[in-house]
């Protein structure tokens, strides 16, 4: 194992331990919050434990990210084939415009369509999460040199063999980078889902903002932030 890899591994491991402590060490939360906010009476978010909230949050992110990945990669494959070529500029532009679109707006727009709760949030996260994956995968395919295409066709690969044996493996690092961005954005954005009743770590944040209770806010924000760091470190590990 190289030195760099060791460091990423240790970093990931430390984050994981800190994350687990934060999720499960209820007494720690009570004592720390008491020390920080001695004048407050309500310190611990009452509706659900942090571990439940984290679990809900993870479900939101997992469902939406898996859907985004499948859809993003699939669209990227289609628009880089011969028959889908004419849609490439459209997909390119959409993914560029999509990045400038605030996620809250996607959430707000999905409510009239799907109502409140888990599904519309997953849907909004899924739509928003497609974009970085789509963009990166297209970039990945386009980064493959013409001579590699020539060689693949020249040895007699069918289009499908070329896709699976050459193009996807070569675009893989790009795809992973896209998934990484998508997941990390989704972890943050999923907190907004609480406003339409999706639960997750957004719930204590929203409650804290409404009742001006900073202790609640910390219980949502801290695990969410750590979760983002943790996934980032996880993808770092996968990279080498």
């Amino acid at each position: 194992m190289s030195r760099k890899k060791k460091i990423t591994f240790v970093y990931f491991f430390i984050l994981l331990i800190v994350f687990l402590i934060i999720i499960f060490y209820q007494a720690g939360w009570v004592n720390t919050l008491k020390f920080l906010f001695p004048e407050k009476e309500q310190l611990i978010y009452p509706r659900a434990s942090i571990s439940t909230l984290v679990w809900e949050h993870l479900k939101l992110v997992a469902f939406s990210s898996v859907l985004s990945t499948l859809t993003g990669v699939l669209i990227a494959i289609l628009v880089t084939r011969k028959f889908g070529k004419s849609f490439l500029p459209l997909a390119d532009n959409l993914s560029a415009i999509g990045q400038t679109f605030p996620p809250v707006a996607v959430l707000a727009l999905s409510v009239p369509l799907l109502g409140f709760g888990f599904e519309p949030t997953v849907f909004a996260l899924f739509i928003y999460g497609i974009l970085p994956i789509l963009r990166n995968t297209i970039n990945g395919f386009q980064s493959i040199a013409k001579d590699i295409h020539d060689a693949a066709e020249g040895v007699g690969m069918t289009p499908l063999q070329k896709l699976f044996k050459v193009e996807l493996p070569l675009a893989f690092p790009y795809i992973m980078a896209g998934i990484r961005i998508s997941v990390i954005i989704n972890i943050g954005t999923a907190t907004v889902g609480a406003t339409i009743g999706a639960g997750g770590l957004g719930a204590p944040i929203t409650a804290g903002l409404i009742s001006n209770n900073f202790a609640y806010l910390l219980q949502g924000a801290l695990p969410a932030a750590l979760m983002a760091f943790l996934f980032d470190a996880f993808f770092n590990l996968l990279e080498d």
Binding site: A145, D147, D150, A151, G154, V155, V166
Partner: peptide
Amino acid sequence: RKKIGYVIQTIGLF
């Protein structure tokens, strides 16, 4: 194409 070996200048190794 499987019956024809093909070598190019840029080599095109995968």
